[in-house]
Design a protein around this nucleic acid. Structure first.
Lengths: 213, 213
DNA sequence: ATATGAATTAAACAAATGATTAATAAAAAA
DNA sequence: TTTTTTATTAATCATTTGTTTAATTCATAT
């Protein structure tokens, strides 16, 4: 049984001391903002207002601290996915609506997460290998419902991986382009979030049109 | 008039000496692979097989070298965009086909580019501000044709920024997820590229279904 | 109250890193 | 050829960075 927990806003049983939590919070914030290499241990010490030596005292090394944060962040991310995708009670169309709402809210709350995850994953794909929930998406109720629809002749047939990829693409990618979109459309951060909120309703409709015969 | 040119495979009039080109090639490759902070000047010197001091002799600082590469990379990326989007002879549907083909080929040739650009842009959005072609996409023939279609009642009406964002999302995002997709689908790099090549045909059809009434 | 272990601190270390220097080699100009 | 400019090299500098140490404070149990 894994005993992990990352940040102060998490609820799972938490063995971490105050100091550890301060370190983890600051480190997560900095790693997300600047990435692994650009974040120094002294940055983390300053931001969390602890003595530099405490980082190594509690977490042994910067690398190990990073890996704990990476694991927790990935786990949190994937858990929220699985939750929606495997709900037996909802239809495919409801799931589409639920997951775009949930993801968009989640990323508005933590906008640096997607770029961070995908970027650090590129440098170290093995950290993803360890995650249990990884393959669950393709075996989820969500995909099964799509394939049923194909059988019934309601939906067009494509490899489910394309279907899932498309859904995630139109949800997540715009956030990764936020600096570009904000620039070319002259949007404030607030305006941008309004635009993303609009998409909560639009995306399910687009996806349905995309697959419906 | 800007006189820039980055790498050996570029053709524009090139004032750079052999040594400079070796440095630029190695630096681009390393910056793309590892990002700015994780790349050291000694890495670049080793990879380009030049003396460490030559980097500062020719480019003054690591930061300045990076900015040259970033500018050139962005410029190259955006130029290819504008080319397709502003072609007066092609229809919207042809443009969709052309641009998904062109982008997918481009990213297959340089798969690290999207993550690199978006990641480094997050750290320094001003570098994008300097680019001239930035706002051209929204004023392109591509967008105009979509809006015409809306007027004619052929296409559903949404803010063009959503339309453009969606097109780019389904083209680019899958590449940024390549480690994930390869993992959950058990694909080799070759298999993955085949899958992306499939999408060249699929994407234009999806987008049309998405917007057509 | 005292002793024991855990938590915290300031200082220091060793390696890495961006940048510079001073000397030398090569190329171009005189 | 000689002079002058440009390119290249090895060595060095000053910081920065991850990590450790040794001393000190704090908390807890005896």
């Amino acid at each position: 049984m894994i005993k992990f927990i990352l940040c102060s806003n998490n609820i799972v049983d938490n063995n971490y001391s105050n100091t550890e939590i301060k370190i983890l919070d600051a480190a997560k914030s900095l790693f997300l903002k600047k990435g692994y290499s650009a974040t120094t241990t002294r940055d983390i010490a300053r931001e969390s207002d602890i003595n530099l030596a405490m980082l190594n005292y509690y977490f042994r090394s910067k690398r190990r601290l990073f890996e704990i944060i990476m694991f927790e962040t990935l786990y949190e991310f994937l858990s929220k996915m699985v939750e929606v995708y495997n709900d037996e009670k909802t239809s495919l169309e409801q799931k589409l609506k639920l997951c775009s709402e949930k993801y968009i809210d989640m990323i508005i709350a933590e906008p640096l997460l997607p770029t961070f995850v995908l970027n650090e994953l590129k440098n170290n794909p093995t950290s993803f290998l360890k995650m249990p929930t990884t393959k669950m998406i393709m075996k989820s109720n969500f995909v099964a419902q799509y394939q049923e629809g194909v059988k019934k002749g309601i939906y067009r047939k494509v490899d489910p991986i394309h279907f899932v990829t498309n859904v995630l693409s139109v949800i997540v990618f715009p956030f990764m382009c936020s600096p570009i979109i904000m620039k070319i459309e002259n949007l404030s951060k607030k305006d941008f979030n309004i635009m993303m909120t609009e998409r909560k309703k639009l995306i399910p409709a687009w996806i349905i049109q995309m697959i419906k015969k």
